[in-house]
């Protein structure tokens, strides 16, 4: 719905860009309200069918050293709404996220995006198809400037082909157009004053903003945010929330993993709850949070563990292990630990 947008200039470039032509703004069904209306009156059983699913996953499993980290029977994500994926620590949310986006390969199961099977589709192809993710620990390219980070996000750049790269006259015009689009997004995310800074010099919250803005450069239909609020200071939180909501207003679908329950209640239209690798409940935020299964899962997560494991040292360790897993430096065993 171009008319809904804040910046009229964005529409021009959006229409010019081939990858963005696929953007959902041209679909009647993607009006946020239509998507939301589709959710009304649905049952809250796990795996309930949605009227207009953008993403469907079935029978997804992933095992680490004998432990089933993910075992999702069925899940559909409604188009044009904000869906939250929540669950206690170690529920397999991030692993599930990786499976959906092609960053990890499931042992079994299949998934469809816009009706297209993503079996054996690489992570980069998934992104080009319109399903773009961010990371729990932001992956801004700290040795590139903020503007270069943004430019990297644009797809279909002629200058990114080796044969054309050394001939600047071939790609200079496109680079200008990409830069224009990047600056608009930076302005919108209030990073325009930082465009020449190295991304490594940004604060945690600014990195989250940059990563989100950069993801938008790809022209996604479905934005997948892995803990967008983690490590963000409260002052920036409100503005981040606003940005996530505005994605929906522009017709994009959002799926995000989050621990911050206030945020989940505040912005999500639909909540999916995972525990021990399975989806145990889904539904509108208020209904889900009152659901006995969910309460049990959150309490049960702590009933299960030995009292010593609630030691702050161990919690710190979990975080460390997560960091290790994100960087891939300490090997997968960290993830195994995490998934336990």
């Amino acid at each position: 719905m171009p008319a809904d947008r804040d910046e009229p200039t964005l529409d021009k470039t959006t229409l010019d860009k081939a990858p963005l032509d696929k953007a959902p703004s041209h679909r009647a069904a993607t009006d946020g309200k239509a998507g939301l209306a589709g959710l009304a009156g649905l049952s809250t059983d796990p795996g309930v069918a949605k009227p207009d699913p953008i993403l469907v996953a079935t029978g997804m499993t992933r095992t680490f050293g004998g432990l089933k980290a993910v075992d999702v029977a069925h899940l559909e994500i409604q188009r044009g709404v904000i869906t939250a994926l929540i669950g206690p620590n170690g529920a397999g949310k991030t692993t599930f996220f990786n499976l959906l986006t092609g960053f990890d390969r499931p042992d079994a199961g299949e998934r469809w995006f816009n009706g297209r099977s993503l079996k054996r589709v690489s992570a980069s192809r998934v992104a080009r198809l319109g399903m773009v993710r961010t990371f729990q620990l932001t992956k801004v390219l700290s040795k590139l400037t903020v503007l270069e980070n943004m430019r990297l996000g644009a797809t279909g750049q002629l200058g990114e082909k080796m044969w054309a790269g050394w001939l600047p006259f071939l790609w200079r015009d496109q680079e200008k157009e990409v830069t224009g689009r990047a600056r608009e997004l930076l302005t919108r995310f209030k990073l325009d004053t930082k465009e020449d800074d190295f991304a490594g010099a940004l604060s945690g919250g600014q990195r989250k903003l940059l990563e989100m803005a950069r993801a938008l450069m790809v022209g996604p239909e479905l934005v997948m945010l892995d803990e967008p609020m983690a490590g963000v200071n409260p002052a920036l939180k409100q503005s981040l929330l606003g940005h996530v909501k505005s994605l929906r207003e522009e017709g994009m679908t959002v799926l995000f993993v989050e621990h911050d329950m206030d945020m989940v209640r505040d912005i999500s239209d639909w909540v999916v709850v995972m525990a021990q690798g399975q989806i145990i409940a889904e539904g509108p935020p208020d209904a889900v949070m009152a659901d006995q299964r969910v309460i049990d899962a959150y309490l049960g997560a702590h009933h299960d563990v030995d009292i010593t494991e609630l030691d702050p040292e161990v919690v710190a360790l979990e975080v460390e292990a997560e960091i290790g897993a994100e960087h891939g430096s300490t090997g997968a065993s960290t993830t195994e630990e995490l998934e336990r």
């Binding site: 991030t94 990786n98 990890d104 390969r105 054996r120 994100e326 891939g328 993830t335």
Partner: peptide
């Protein structure tokens, strides 16, 4: 897990 691109793809 993101860094662990599955090795056996396209075996």
């Amino acid at each position: 897990m993101p860094n662990r691109q599955t090795p056996s793809r396209g075996i």
